[in-house]
Every structure is written in structure tokens, then in C-alpha cells.
């Protein structure tokens, strides 16, 4: 049964890693605004295009 013991502790370690990641995410404010980033990700490309557009003119 020592294999099970090893597996349980390994599994718990992995899970603890994810818990740590979650705690870090909450504390760094990633859950404060869950809406605006979804808009932001669509914008970046447009901006680059506009800049190039400006240069060519």
C-alpha cells in the first residue's frame, strides 16, 4: 500500500500547486474585473493596423 501513499501525497502536492495558483490569482486582482478583458483582447490587433496605416500615409 506504500504506492498508494506515494500517489496520494503526489496528488495532494499537485493540487496544492493549483490552490497556490488560485490564491495568487485572487490576490493579484485577476477576479476583480471579469468583463473588460474580454473586450480588450479584441482591440490590440486593430491598433497595430492603424499605426501602420498612419505610416503609409
Amino acid at each position: 500500500m506504500s504506492v498508494l501513499n506515494l500517489l496520494i501525497s503526489l496528488g495532494l502536492l499537485v493540487a496544492l500547486g493549483f490552490l497556490g495558483a488560485f490564491l495568487w490569482a485572487v490576490r493579484s486582482g485577476q477576479y476583480d474585473d471579469t468583463y473588460t478583458p474580454s473586450l480588450r483582447m479584441l482591440h490590440d490587433e486593430d491598433r497595430v493596423l492603424t499605426k501602420e496605416h498612419q505610416k503609409t500615409r
Binding site: L19, F22, L23, V26, R27, Y31, D32
Partner: peptide
């Protein structure tokens, strides 16, 4: 609220 989120997470 973020404290509650942490509590739920744990």
C-alpha cells in the same frame, strides 16, 4: 469579496 473568494477556494 476577494476574501470570500479565497475562503471558497480553500
Amino acid at each position: 469579496l476577494s476574501r470570500l473568494t479565497l475562503q471558497i477556494g480553500v
